[in-house]
Nucleic acid binder design. Structure first.
Lengths: 139, 139
DNA sequence: ATATATGCAAAGACTTTGCTATCGA
DNA sequence: TCGATAGCAAAGTCTTTGCATATAT
């Protein structure tokens, strides 16, 4: 999708990848920064951002640009969908295949756009927030 | 979805609604601010943001929280989908009905979430950018 | 009359970037 | 070696907020 990055594997890059792979959540840059800093106390947030961007462009990690504000990252590659809790902001994977957008193609064609990607995002309330009786959006 | 807002119709609110309705694009807060300022030169950006938020919560306008950064707004209510140009950031409507997510419900149920909404976003390259030969993402 | 909204400006949240020293291939 | 990268800090972008005044109902 972009240039063919030839990545130089620095210590920081390595640790970022490892920490991301270890998490099974979809952390933000800041959360990753926190993890990485435990192992590389002098790492800078800028480095984390630069590397997450680079790694996602190189295809080694996923960048989840879900609605709202903050970006999230994902060590799992391959198409899969997410559901986000409107209350706490948590993002989780939805198992199962993406339904091919057959029926959508005609509508797209009418817009004149070249279709690149179809993203599906679900919004809901996660079990923890439901139990807490928090039903109003916050994140 | 939130409280039952009883909106007091101020001049600023009025003009924001009018300008948004007049545009058939999906402007950002800043673009709306520019329009509104032509008619109310002393309006503040804060007021525009506050009102867009309020109006969208009241259901009078739509807030498009599409991936990435900036928020966009929409005078059309009712479910419809959007396609965004990865090059110039333009957002357009896709005509046609939303396909009911029948096949998705089981997958959602497995997550334990209470499903509130399903959003579909298409990414592509708009005709103008395609003609300009700009195929790399930028916005 | 009075609860709400405005304008203004400052602060906030998140992300990017310029610069110089350092490091990996 | 030497171009890519790190750390640091400053700047940037978009959005929210505190406060005193003005306004809609």
């Amino acid at each position: 999708m972009m240039e063919p990055y030839k990545i130089r594997m620095t210590r920081q890059r390595q640790v970022i990848l490892e920490e991301l792979a270890r998490l099974h959540t979809h952390p933000t840059a800041d959360e990753i920064y926190g993890r990485v800093r435990m192992r590389l106390p002098r790492v800078s947030l800028g480095t984390v951002y630069r590397n997450l961007e680079l790694l996602s462009r190189s295809g080694m990690i996923g960048k989840i640009e879900i609605a709202g504000r903050q970006m999230h990252f994902d060590s799992e590659r391959g198409a899969h969908r997410h559901i986000r809790c409107i209350r706490c902001g948590r993002i989780e994977d939805i198992p199962g295949e993406q339904v091919p957008p057959e029926c959508d193609r005609d509508a797209i064609r009418a817009t004149g756009y070249t279709l690149i990607e179809r993203r599906v995002e679900f919004l809901g309330i996660c079990p923890a927030c439901r139990r807490a009786g928090r039903n109003e959006p916050d994140a």
